[in-house]
Design a protein around this nucleic acid. Structure first.
Length: 401
RNA sequence: GGAGGGGUGCCGGAGUGGUUAAUCGGAGCAGACUGUAAAUCUGCCGCCUGAAAGGGCUACGCAGGUUCGAAUCCUGCCCCCUCCA
């Protein structure tokens, strides 16, 4: 396994390490390191973008180190100021717990549970007093905080910044102190926060943590960073078919980045891929298929990957009907329109939408294109909308009578 | 305390009395094409009704008002932001 190799771990899919020499030395010293990873319980779903750093954590685990996963139940209430995140609703304790559970289920798909320690921010922030806050805040100046790009751009653009947002990096930094982190992981957009952690640790006499930054993965739209709110994400908990399809839909320009960041396909092979793409001797589609298989194999297994591929080939490349189609029981009384059937089978959200779909020629029944609402639907009919949405209609009246 | 700016459809953002269900961009959906659910091109993109043509209803922070007619004018209320102090 390549991940056993320190050199590989420090090089592959890494954006920046602060301070690289120190980290390298620490790794070779044989000391068991505490690797910090935080998670905001407002967003319990993990996608490929998160997987980049989680894979790194896993690689460190394989080298014998300890992960400390922090459930950021306090800072979640503030919201990371990166981007223009609006004030978010404050989560109830139950929600936080439920989200944490969802998160960990996905987290441990990638990371080894045995070498992970889970800590809640409330363990230390629950006891925080005003005095502690004053102590903490007096260590930093506005100028220091405004050095962060997010803040300064927002400030000069006349957009609001709340005091609590300014507090966010400090609290995150304090987490590092509380758990005595040796290394903290994050995307490049976390650089500022992680540096504050370093600073605070040295102020209180701890050895400053090393900072391990991974590249931000671009979403399936090919332009913005992968995020759930933008809808351009591939979730690690999604079914294999869905992951496969989404990988196939990324723009060709992203192929190499994905291979680099979320797979362990050896560098030499990636070199070949890159050359092939440039000289157009490799069909990008073939690489995307490989990429999809690699990702699904990590999250599920090889068989799931093979099945997802089969499904894709069948439905999208050959335009055939998939094996498994969701069935819906519909009352096929005389005079029921196709529109109603589309709504009943969730293929259309409203009858107006169903109208449009029919008018656009998107609907077919048993492979026959349908052009109006009076088309006959029978029990057992397979209705297809667009390229990929299918439903099988079962006459509910037959079942019940 | 003072001055000013703003709340529009999933998001961003036009629109200051009249074919405005509301320019445009993004997202989404569909069609064509294709080497892919890439790219590109085209269309659609509130709800209900109709086989269709069409018809109806609801919408521009909230509540009233002016008017033949309002997202656009007036009044009150709620909310957000900036600057000065």
């Amino acid at each position: 396994m390549f991940s056993q190799d320190i050199g590989y771990v420090l090089r592959r899919g890494v954006a920046e390490i602060i301070v690289e020499d120190e980290l390298s030395e620490l790794l070779r010293s044989g000391k068991k390191l505490r690797l910090k990873e935080g998670f905001d319980p407002s967003f319990p779903d993990i996608h490929l973008g998160h997987m980049v750093s989680l894979r790194k954590l896993h690689q460190f685990q394989e080298l014998g180190h300890q992960i400390v996963l922090i459930v950021a139940d306090w800072t979640a209430q503030i919201g990371d100021p990166s981007g223009m995140s609006a004030t978010r609703p404050i989560l109830s304790m139950e929600q936080v717990k439920a989200n944490a559970e969802t998160y960990m289920k996905q987290f441990f798909k990638i990371v080894d549970r045995k070498r992970t320690e889970v800590r809640w921010q409330s363990e230390w922030f629950g006891k925080f007093t005003l005095n502690d806050i004053i102590q903490l805040t007096s260590k930093f100046t506005i100028a220091q905080l405004m050095a962060r790009e997010d803040f300064s751009t927002r400030y000069s653009a006349g957009r609001p910044i709340t005091m609590t947002e300014l507090l966010y990096p400090l609290l995150q930094a304090y987490d590092s102190v509380a758990i005595q982190a040796d290394v903290e992981f994050g995307g490049t957009d976390q650089k500022f926060n992680l540096l504050v952690g370093r600073e605070l640790q040295s102020m209180v006499g701890q050895r400053p943590q090393q900072i391990f930054l991974v590249p931000i993965l671009t979403g399936t739209d090919g332009s913005q960073k992968m995020s759930k709110s933008l809808g351009n994400y591939i979730g690690v908990a999604e079914p294999p078919e869905e992951i496969y399809g989404k990988v196939m839909s990324i723009p060709d320009s992203l192929i190499m980045d994905y291979f680099e960041s979320v797979t362990d396909v050896p560098d030499e092979e990636l070199e070949e891929f890159g050359q092939g793409l440039k000289s157009e001797t490799i069909n990008p589609m073939v690489l995307k298929k490989r990429l999809a298989r690699e990702i699904i194999t990590q999250l599920y297994d090889q068989q799931a990957a093979a099945e997802a591929e089969e499904h894709f080939v069948k439905v999208f490349q050959k335009r055939e009907v998939p094996e498994e189609i969701k069935e819906y029981h519909v009352h096929l009384s005389a005079g029921i329109g196709l529109r109603d059937v589309l709504v009943e089978t969730h293929l259309a959200r409203s009858r107006s939408e169903a109208n449009r779909l029919i008018a656009q020629g998107a609907v077919s029944i048993d492979s026959e294109k349908v052009t109006n609402n009076v088309a006959p639907v029978q029990s057992g009919s397979i209705i297809k909308v667009g390229k990929r949405r299918f439903a099988k209609v079962i006459n509910a009246d037959i079942i019940t009578s």
